[in-house]
Structure formats: structure tokens, C-alpha cells
């Protein structure tokens, strides 16, 4: 069986649609519906961000940029943005470094308690953290991690474990063992095999895992409030205030500000999210 690689792996003409015209109409209709559902809320927010006041039943608001000055003038907001964009990538990277080798072990090696341990990583996300605050805070005090960058990273790290273990494990499992065995047969050592054969094939899946891990770290709010205050506050905590308690345009402005870097990631990550790349990680 040949390995499915890149664009060549995609099927030819879609063969399971009967009538061509109906198909086009259905496709377009579905696309528009989905686009409306996904983009609608975001576009509404965009309009609110440019609004001075907006009352029902006006379709459009009175436009004004005064709320931008209000938000950008708030230095706490700027500090929180910076902290989030520094700590979340670091947490993701750290998570990748400690979890990817573990995922490989889960996928390829046999050791006692493997299944139980794999399942136990579910608990990182499944057990509600509310019940754990006092204990975690006490521990962090003892380790001098309160109100430190490292402390915030640790808390965010917890949220990433699930994604960084489970998805890479699935990815590694899907890689054809024959490839690795072939490399071993020609004399490559285990590390060389891993870095030159396994990792490149697994890369798309690992990148997807990193993406989810990053988002999980980024969105972390309750834990970072305890550990990061007062000098290392993150964006999610700030967001509650701005979204809930100020006139609508303020929340909208902040949302737009936050989403811009995210959309940048989106465009950069498109390469990896494309189906062909993910296909490179799997074979039969």
C-alpha cells in the first residue's frame, strides 16, 4: 500500500453526489449557512467596536472611536495582554518538551500501568479546580511560586497536559511501524530514527496538539488569578471586567484587540491545518 502524501492523497472527483446542479446548490447553501453562523457573531462584535451608541431598532450604530481611547488608555489592560502572550507560549513549549516523549512512550512502548496512566491524564481536566484552590495555593507558597512568571506558567501547564498527551499519542500510534523498523534495519539508532523519521511525519499532528494546548493555556482564568496577582495578571481575568460591566462597545473593542493576534496565528497556522499536511502523518 502506498503512503498517502500531501495533495496527491485527496480523492479525485467527488463520486457520491448524484445530480450536479443540486449538489452545487446544496453546497453553496450549506456554506452560506455555516458562514453566517460562524462569522455572524464576530461581525456583530466588529460593528459594536466602531459604535458610539447603538439603540434598537437601528440596523447600524452611530459610529465613533471614542471607546478605543478608553480601552487603550488603560495600562492594566496593556500589561495583561503582554503577560498572556508571554506566558501561554512558554507554557505550551514546556508542555511539548515534557509531554511529547511521554506520548511516544504511550504509543510505542509497553510498560506496566500504561492504560491507567493514560486515562489519569484525563483527570487534569475532568476534576473541577474549584475544589483544589487552597491546596494548590499552599503548595505554591511553599515553592515560592506565587506571583511569579514561573507560577503562572505552571498553572497554565496543567491545562495543556490533556491535549499534549492524548493527541500526540494518537498521532504516534498512527505512524506506520514499518517505517521505523526500516530505519533501524539500516542501522539508525533509536534517537536518530525518532528525530529523522518519526517526528517529521508526526509533526502536523503535534502542531495541532500544540495549538489546542496553547489555547487552553491562554484561556486559563481562575488559577492565574490566584497565582499571578498582583504583578502577573493575564487577559482572561481582565476580560470578565471589560465584557460584563462596561457599555457594549468597550467589550467589543477589547475583543477586537485580542482577536487580531489570534487571527494572525490563524493565517500562519493555515498551512498546518490543511488536510494534506495532516495526511502526511498517517498511513496504512
Amino acid at each position: 500500500m502506498s503512503v498517502a502524501v500531501g495533495a496527491a492523497g485527496r480523492a479525485g472527483a467527488p463520486w457520491f453526489w448524484a445530480i450536479a446542479g443540486l449538489r452545487r446548490a446544496l453546497e453553496l447553501g450549506a456554506f452560506l449557512a455555516l458562514a453566517a453562523f460562524i462569522l455572524g457573531p464576530l461581525l456583530t462584535l466588529l460593528v459594536w467596536a466602531a459604535a458610539g451608541t447603538w439603540l434598537f431598532p437601528n440596523l447600524l450604530p452611530e459610529f465613533s472611536l471614542r471607546w478605543w481611547y478608553y480601552v487603550l488608555g488603560n495600562e492594566n489592560v496593556v500589561k495583561a495582554i503582554r503577560m498572556s502572550f508571554l506566558s501561554a507560549p512558554v507554557a505550551t513549549l514546556l508542555s511539548a518538551v515534557i509531554c511529547i516523549p511521554a506520548a511516544y512512550a504511550f504509543a510505542r512502548l509497553e510498560f506496566p500501568g500504561r492504560r491507567l496512566l493514560l486515562l489519569s491524564f484525563l483527570s487534569a481536566n475532568a476534576f473541577p479546580k474549584i475544589g483544589l484552590y487552597v491546596s494548590i495555593a499552599t503548595l505554591f507558597y511553599r515553592l515560592n511560586l506565587m506571583d511569579t512568571f514561573a507560577g503562572v506558567v505552571m498553572i497554565q501547564l496543567i491545562n495543556t497536559l490533556l491535549f499534549m498527551i492524548w493527541i500526540p499519542t494518537g498521532t504516534f500510534r498512527g505512524i506506520n511501524r514499518n517505517l521505523e523498523d526500516a530505519a533501524r534495519d539500516v542501522g539508525a539508532g533509536p534517537l536518530r530514527t525518532f528525530f529523522n523519521i518519526t517526528l517529521p511525519i508526526a509533526l502536523p499532528g503535534l502542531i495541532v496538539a500544540s495549538l489546542f494546548a496553547f489555547l487552553a493555556a491562554f484561556d486559563e482564568a481562575q488559577g492565574t488569578l490566584i497565582v499571578g496577582t498582583p504583578n502577573h495578571m493575564t487577559m482572561p481575568v481582565m476580560m470578565y471586567t471589560l465584557v460584563l460591566s462596561y457599555p457594549q462597545p468597550v467589550g467589543a473593542v477589547f475583543s477586537v484587540l485580542l482577536s487580531l493576534p489570534s487571527l494572525l496565528f490563524l493565517l500562519l497556522a493555515q498551512r498546518y491545518l490543511r488536510a494534506g499536511y495532516l495526511a502526511a502523518g498517517y498511513s496504512l
Binding site: 492594566n76 495555593a137 460591566s245
Partner: peptide, 20 residues
């Protein structure tokens, strides 16, 4: 100054003081 809107997150601050 740290702002706790609607006292959201106050249980965390309480936990922090207690833990200290």
C-alpha cells in the same frame, strides 16, 4: 490595584491569604 468584578475570583484571593 487589582479589580475583582462582582467579586469574581474572590474565593481565589481568600484562598491565597489563607494559604499564606
Amino acid at each position: 490595584m487589582v479589580e475583582l468584578l462582582h467579586d469574581n475570583g474572590s474565593e481565589g484571593i481568600y484562598a491565597k491569604i489563607l494559604a499564606a
